[in-house]
């Protein structure tokens, strides 16, 4: 007998696979994805392991892994997969789900939020402001800072960011994206 909890996990997992357009049994565990993944060395669940978890029904290991936050979206795995299993798609969907379930990697969250704040203010991404704010909030004040004097001397970074004029429109767009995505049609 499946417990309620197992049933719920199974349903969530099926929905995740459907949204990502991935069929778990397309994967025959050859390991080419992990072999080519540039971030595998730092992942607690390798790309092949992610696929194995979809086969044995362990959604929990996927959403709690650091993998979904470390994947760079480079698409090397799917490029080399003999069965075109789209792992980056699956990981992206798993990231949304993990966020909904409350599993978020702190540093990723800080970077993403600082980024969004940047876009809200300027419509564009002000790189050094992004890096500076990120460093402050993530308590890594010195990361990349030795390069700042060089960038200032050569005017690679300025005080006043270039910006999109219609930032009001951008903010409306962000609000609508947030509103509509909760009623996004399932699947493709």
């Amino acid at each position: 007998m499946q417990s309620e909890k197992q049933k719920e996990q199974k349903e969530k997992l099926d929905e995740l696979l459907r949204k990502a357009d991935v069929r778990q049994y397309d994967c025959y565990q050859c390991g080419k994805c992990t072999g080519g993944c540039p971030m595998a060395h730092a992942m607690d669940l390798k790309p092949r392991g992610v696929m194995r978890c979809t086969q044995i029904g362990s959604l929990e290991r996927i959403v709690k892994s650091n993998t979904i936050w470390l994947c760079t979206g480079c698409h090397t795995c799917v490029e080399r997969c003999p069965h075109d299993v789209n792992i980056p798609n699956l990981i992206e969907e798993a990231r949304y789900l993990a966020a909904e379930m409350g599993y978020v990697r702190r540093d990723s969250k800080i970077l993403n939020e600082v980024f969004l704040a940047n876009i809200r203010m300027f419509g564009r991404n002000h790189e050094m402001l992004l890096a500076g704010l990120y460093n402050m909030l993530s308590l890594k004040p010195l990361q990349d800072m030795p390069t700042v004097p060089h960038m200032l001397t050569h005017k690679l970074i300025g005080v006043l960011p270039h910006q999109t004029k219609n930032t009001a429109g951008i903010n409306r767009m962000i609000a609508r994206a947030e509103k509509f995505s909760s009623m996004r049609p399932a699947g493709k």
């Binding site: 979206g73 992206e92 990231r95 949304y96 990723s108 970077l111 993403n112 980024f115 969004l116 940047n118 876009i119 419509g123 564009r124 991404n125 999109t164 951008i170 994206a177 947030e178 509509f180 995505s181 996004r184």
Partner: peptide, 14 residues
């Protein structure tokens, strides 16, 4: 405006 790479789609698909 900014294309959103890479946080835009990390946050929200739409």
């Amino acid at each position: 405006n900014c294309c959103g790479a890479t946080s835009g789609h990390a946050l929200n698909e739409l």
